[in-house]
C-alpha cells in the first residue's frame, strides 16, 4: 500500500496570506507539484488557474510535472514582481 509523502511547504506573498502561515509539514499522496497545488488550492483558496504558478523543489526551479519525493521542500511561486 502506498505511503503518503512527507513534504515541507513554504508560502510566500499572496499564497502566504491565503494559507495564513509561512510553512508547514504535510502528508500527501500528490505525485507532482501540479497535483499538490490543486490540493492546496482547494484547501486554502489559492488561484485555481495554475498556469501562472511555478514551483521550486529543494531550492531549484522545477517543472510542475516533476515527481515529488518524501522530504522535499516545495515552494510555489506565484507571479513575480521584482524591480
Amino acid at each position: 500500500m502506498e505511503k503518503p509523502k512527507v513534504l515541507n511547504i513554504h508560502y510566500y506573498a499572496m499564497l502566504r496570506e491565503k494559507a495564513g502561515k509561512r510553512e508547514e509539514d504535510i502528508e500527501s499522496f500528490a505525485a507532482t507539484p501540479l497535483e499538490l497545488y490543486k490540493d492546496l488550492a482547494g484547501e486554502y483558496g489559492f488561484p485555481s488557474d495554475s498556469r501562472s504558478i511555478r514551483v521550486s523543489i529543494n531550492e531549484e526551479f522545477q517543472s510542475m510535472d516533476t515527481a515529488l519525493c518524501s522530504g522535499d521542500c516545495v515552494i510555489f511561486i506565484p507571479p513575480v514582481a521584482g524591480g
Binding site: 510566500y12 506573498a13 499572496m14 521550486s56 515552494i75 511561486i77 506565484p78 513575480v80 514582481a81 521584482g82 524591480g83
Partner: peptide, 9 residues
Amino acid sequence: IKHRLPIWK
C-alpha cells in the same frame, strides 16, 4: 531580474 527572481511586491 524583474522577470525571473522570486520577488513579490
